[in-house]
């Protein structure tokens, strides 16, 4: 996998995983009944597989994946990449526990059937689940905080390097937040919508959940639009002449280079279409037409996901590092 592709897949998926977890936490709080919980349980299947695919994508890019797995968090003192990896690792552990507490639940967990058939495990797992179940929300909150606050921050900071002026901007973190909450939360909403469309039955809280999704979605689209605007107008001016030059070169490539199409597609799909679908979703919810809402929720996710992939492609693809403009500066005596 080429360098950029693996970065794109890794960052988008790992951030989505955080969002998916947050979505499940919301569901956790919304679930008023066993039926609700049973309905929502399916959504718990999103987070862990997504982050695992992301990790595979990243490791496949490393020269020595196994060594990387063991050593990447070796340099917490100064390396934001190490911090990012550590935060992600802890998040994944908590996310696995949290997910397990959903899917192994004894009354509606989808794995409960399998577990009961296996020897030893059939005794062990339910016992563990029983002990930890009261802590599920707490673990979920911990994972969400770790993922959303620590991991996202470390991740954004690891890209906000002086040498990469186009990343070294206040918009980087918002971009990541948008991926997390827009693509991540709607991913869960989409899965649940599919489930709803297949069975045509849902807990009461599903409507509330979709409302929550819509709210978050609209907030994120607004944030995204602002960030993209700030990004292409380079409102936050770089700190040095050199950085400014690299930033301008990046802008040039973004607007007129080979990534220009991606940028405009992202605006149309990732902001425009998503917003249209979100408005439709809200209208459907007002009209209480849940099926339409479900279809639109799926559409929101699909467009948001495509938009984020496109956006991340621009993010990684059209960066002009400082080293490329450095000769010009070294030559001015």
């Amino acid at each position: 996998m080429s360098g950029n592709t693996s970065y794109i897949i890794f960052t988008v998926l790992s951030q989505m995983a955080v969002g998916a977890l947050i979505a499940m936490l919301i569901a956790d709080f919304l679930a008023k009944s066993k039926e609700d919980a049973k309905f929502f349980e399916t959504g718990a299947w999103v987070c862990v597989p997504v982050v695992v695919v992301g990790l595979i994508a990243m490791l496949s890019h490393e020269a020595r994946p196994f060594l990387a797995m063991l050593t990447m968090n070796n340099h917490l003192a100064t390396s934001w990449l190490s911090r990012e990896v550590l935060a992600l690792t802890l998040f994944v552990i908590l996310a696995v526990v949290y997910t397990a507490l959903w899917v192994c639940e004894s009354e509606y967990g989808s794995l409960r059937g399998i577990i009961s058939k296996l020897p030893v495990i059939s005794a062990l797992i339910p016992a563990l689940v029983k002990i930890f179940m009261p802590l599920r929300k707490i673990i979920g909150v911990l994972a969400a905080v770790l993922g959303f606050v620590v991991y996202l921050y470390a991740s954004a900071t690891s890209y906000m390097m002086y040498t990469m002026p186009a990343w070294n901007q206040p918009t980087t973190l918002p971009f990541f937040i948008v991926t997390t909450l827009l693509a991540g939360v709607t991913a869960v909403a989409a899965v649940l919508s599919v489930k709803y469309l297949m069975n045509k039955e849902a807990g009461k809280s599903f409507t509330t959940f979709l409302w929550a999704t819509t709210g978050i979605g609209v907030a994120m689209v607004v944030l995204l639009a602002a960030a993209v605007y700030a990004n292409i107008t380079m409102l936050p001016i770089a700190s040095t002449e050199m950085a400014k030059m690299a930033q301008l070169a990046t802008l040039e490539d973004m607007l007129h280079g080979e990534h220009a199409t991606f940028l405009w597609l992202r605006v149309v799909i990732g902001i425009g279409l998503v917003l249209v679908c979100l408005v439709g979703l809200a209208l459907a919810l007002i009209k209480k037409s849940i099926s339409t809402a479900a279809i639109l929720a799926i559409a929101v996710f699909v467009f948001a996901f495509i938009g984020e992939l496109l956006g991340r492609t621009v993010f990684f693809g059209s960066i002009v590092p400082l080293s490329e403009v450095m000769p010009h500066f070294l030559s001015i005596v």
């Binding site: 360098g3 890019h61 020269a63 994946p65 990449l81 040498t163 990469m164 450095m326």
Partner: peptide, 17 residues
């Protein structure tokens, strides 16, 4: 022998070394 080829130093380096 320690390097894992993550490329992160390449991003960090102002000289593209």
């Amino acid at each position: 022998d320690k390097c894992i080829g993550c490329g992160y130093c390449g991003w960090a380096c102002p000289f593209g070394a």
